[in-house]
Design a protein around this nucleic acid. Sequence first.
DNA 1: AATTGTAAGCGCTTACAATT
DNA 2: AATTGTAAGCGCTTACAATT
Lengths: 339, 339
Amino acid sequence: MPNSAPATIEDVARIAEVSIATVSRAIHTPDKVAKSTRQRVNQAIAITGYTTNAMARSLRMGRSNMILILAPDIGDPNFSSTLIGLENEARAHGYGVLIGHTQNDPERGLEYLKFLSSGQATGLVLFTGHEPFGHQVLGQRLPPSVAVFEPVFGSKISYVGVDDVAGARKAAEHLLSAGHRSIAFIGDSKTRLGHQRRRQGFDIALDAARIPPNQRFVLEGEGTIESGRLAVEQLFMRDQLPSAFMCVNDATAVGVLNGLTARGYDLPHDFSVIGFDDVPQATYVNPALTTIRQPRTAIGRQAMSLLIKSLGDRTMERQEILLMPDLIVRGSVTGPARR
Amino acid sequence: MPNSAPATIEDVARIAEVSIATVSRAIHTPDKVAKSTRQRVNQAIAITGYTTNAMARSLRMGRSNMILILAPDIGDPNFSSTLIGLENEARAHGYGVLIGHTQNDPERGLEYLKFLSSGQATGLVLFTGHEPFGHQVLGQRLPPSVAVFEPVFGSKISYVGVDDVAGARKAAEHLLSAGHRSIAFIGDSKTRLGHQRRRQGFDIALDAARIPPNQRFVLEGEGTIESGRLAVEQLFMRDQLPSAFMCVNDATAVGVLNGLTARGYDLPHDFSVIGFDDVPQATYVNPALTTIRQPRTAIGRQAMSLLIKSLGDRTMERQEILLMPDLIVRGSVTGPARR
DNA sequence: AATTGTAAGCGCTTACAATT
DNA sequence: AATTGTAAGCGCTTACAATT
């Protein structure tokens, strides 16, 4: 029943009958200690259950092997699978991750930034789409950082995400090839770069199909379920209806589906709907949502890989890695209804 | 453009023209330093942007003010709002939280436990339903801990969660008062204590209504969407059908809804369905799910409050705090169909 | 040249002593 | 009694010296 305080390097040294320096070397640079000594040390480690105190180590070395992940909303369906990619890649390189849940609260963000300045973390992953609030307040330079999902506007922070333009184009082309000619775009944004790029992909596809842009079929929205519902209502107050809805993301699409169902339409017979993201919920709305899948785990993996590289090479320039998304065909798209 | 290393207590001391001991006291026990000195120190802090190095502080003091939260799956819809309750309460008491995402991987769990033994964290919140793997391996006692959502079986770890029996009873009574007499229970479990308690609540309600138990209407399941779908299929292979489905949780209910819809039934007209948890998705399945709401944020808040108390008083005994859940009426329950 | 130990120091807190 | 400073030490890593 080993109780008491955890073993320190001192305990190990005493048992192995060496100095603490030798213990440290046996652990971190084993080839610098004689084989027999190394064995005695390893035995002592086994006996004591020693693990090195990360705080003391980081304090002494002036850096840690922890990466801080700043996320405004841990409940975001895009977050958890990306996190897994981040974690696995970090681990493979001997790094650990610290999750900073900011709840979009600048104060919390600031608190987590202290992990950086105090050396508890050395690198930064941003889910936020903007530089952390008040990092200038702290009077510190940002450490090596990488943004995921949403590029950081006007910053030299690297970015790993999906190719929004290409993905949206795929979505629109799927609708077009099903025969749709009047397609609404739901979720136009003046502020979110990623959503603007999706709009761009939509425009390109329609243009390539020689369909003239129709501004009345482009509705704004902030990418929430509620905004999708709202867009449907707005559209129904006008004279003309599209035969298909291309939504800026799945949340919007779920809202559109809801709004349409609430109005008594039979989907996908009456209207086709396509989303973007492929969140877990996409499979169990009714009809199941045809959408564009973000390669989330791969995004996480690549982002971490890039970050670790730039940890080793501080002169590395900004990079943007765009991954290609896939079309996932489920039940919400079919040919246009005869009306 | 303040660059360079972050300010240390030494920098502050030099500018304020005091010793570092005085700086430390000015920060942590301000009434022990003269007012004029305190002011000079505060000014120096403002100038330098100093924040105390948490690692050095914890190392010196032998304890930190961080709570480790061990979660097997951050994507679980129950997690994020509970986390907010935990975080807010921790913060109100000057504690921070560290999120350990174990992915159900014992090795990862073990890694995070080192935060405890190295003093990077002092308390533990468990979402796992079991003691962390291998904490005996580390040869260490568990620190003050509290479990949420799933009590830790056979352990003296305190527990804060919903009153499953009472909640399930409410659900069943809602079905009964809508006129249902043949109700299936989907998601019976041999292993999950919380789910067993829900089953218990169900039995109690039926018994109180003098409805004899019907074992053919009790189907096992692990609480996933898939298991809900499966249960529907199993039921339809039998001779007799219930008029309502009481599901052990919302995920199961979504599966049941799906399975029923896929078979062409009109819900809730043909069958009523009730869930448990009130996950975010419950609002946008079709029909919207009537369910029992877990007071997630409150659970988080109370759990953290209890934990912090036991941090102050190590002799505290195990406690179990059961919060009362509410019935949330939406669209998935109505009277039984005439058939 | 290979192996080991000595001692300093990372940034803090706090017991104790010293000063007013 | 109120206020301040001195110095030790938390658990480590590593430059340097010492030994073989």
